[in-house]
Write a protein that binds this DNA or RNA. Structure first.
Lengths: 230, 230
DNA sequence: TCCTAATCCATACGTTGTACGATTATGTAC
DNA sequence: GTACATAATCGTACAACGTATGGATTAGGA
């Protein structure tokens, strides 16, 4: 087989074609556009117009690609710090909102990002600084700050996971919790049924933004109570 | 090739037969013992001493197997209700502890369980009843109960995800957050570094149980504050 | 000019999920 | 009993996957 239109071997000086970054960027685009299952090494190589095996020079295997994507998403997080201009709880909420928004940018990757512990690199650790900054002003002990930050982050993770799970499936959307509860036989979960019915008409559709804000308020109130008890 | 020891075609009346339940049970065992990657249709069929294609008579595809496993885990949850004998917040905490413990039984499945929205079946919805029971006693509006329950569940999910991610990898355990922060250049995240250093020696290893309890206390305190403001 | 390392390509192997059709038993209608 | 639809299993086969191996080509330093 003769090489037509495509040369083998190391590319000439000016024509660098592959790099870890370029690969990850292309991979991110595929995942965002077509879902995580659409990401295969062959497909990835095709969009880069390159032989599949060329990828392995820059990344050891597919798991490394996924880990790289998780890292990329985290690195893309930008948590603006309003500083001492606002009360500590509002400062904390701002950081949380930014964190959630960052994760929302790539719903198809949420699962990968949130579960890849190897992605807990320096990048991620540094991301948490704004949370500590805000909590430090609340009058907590180091241990309390540590626990509070973890709790808040766990909440954001759980929330984002649920949000992403819903947003990720473009097809076959399952009935959400509210409609499902209404379809339930009344004696299976009486209290649940009564409460959900009591929500009224405006509560028919679940609003993720409202849910997140509500969670943030509950958490900051709980943290404030902890601070007061000290 | 001659059939030795195994006949083709429909089994005779008294003969051992396949069923959705038997398949899922075997699948759960494989996942628990060897991880989610060990679960292949061929491997599953082999442990059942059956042809791989036989599985497809009871389940449409592998995704259905995984969804079935998620459902199975949820169905296995048993949230004991201490009733009115204890204060509402302790009642709520008990439900939360049981929920977390249920998810812990199958760390290799946590990812699947927590992300599979199609598993949000009646089984799962009913599981939430104890949370509503407890919250109903706290003096909240229906809307507040609804939001509080979601917040608590999101926290448990996020927490369980982190816990499972750590417990699932038997190999290549990454350094945890604490040791990683200590290895950080001091100027990258000064507050974070200072707080973690202030944790003292006893805080060297992260204790999941303590972390969970701390989160529960923060959340119940926050919910109590919401109730008071009503 | 030669050497080494970088970069990419071609081929190939084992494994995966599962489509398709054949095979054998069961349950029902006559 | 006989005929027939249906249920349950199996055998074969295929396309797609991740990637091991080894070879080709070139850049850049000695």
């Amino acid at each position: 087989m003769v090489n037509v239109g495509k040369r083998s071997g190391r590319p000439r000086a000016g024509e660098e074609r592959l790099s870890r970054e370029a690969i990850l960027t292309a991979a991110l685009r595929i995942v965002d556009d077509e879902g995580i299952d659409a990401l295969t090494m062959r497909r990835l190589a095709a969009t880069l117009q390159v032989n599949p095996m060329s990828l392995y020079h820059h990344l050891p295997n597919k798991a490394a690609v996924l880990a790289g994507l998780a890292e990329l998403v985290f690195a893309g997080l930008e948590l603006p710090d309003p500083g001492d201009a606002v009360p500590w709880d509002e400062q904390l909420k701002e950081a949380a909102r930014a964190y959630r928004n960052g994760l929302r940018q790539h719903p198809n990757l949420a699962l990968q990002v949130l579960s890849d512990t190897s992605a807990v690199s320096d990048v991620v650790v540094v991301t948490m600084e704004p949370f500590y900054l805000a909590l430090d002003r609340a009058g907590l002990s180091p241990r309390q700050i540590f626990e509070a930050a973890n709790t808040l982050i766990d909440f954001i993770h759980g929330f984002s996971l649920g949000e992403a799970s819903v947003r990720a499936q473009t097809f076959e959307l399952a009935p959400d919790l509210l409609t499902r509860v209404r379809a339930l036989p009344a004696d299976k979960a009486p209290t649940l049924t009564r409460i959900v019915d009591g929500l009224g008409v405006e509560g028919l559709a679940y609003d993720f933004d409202d849910g997140f804000e509500s969670g943030l308020s509950t958490l900051t109130a709980g943290i404030a109570a902890t601070a007061r008890r000290r």
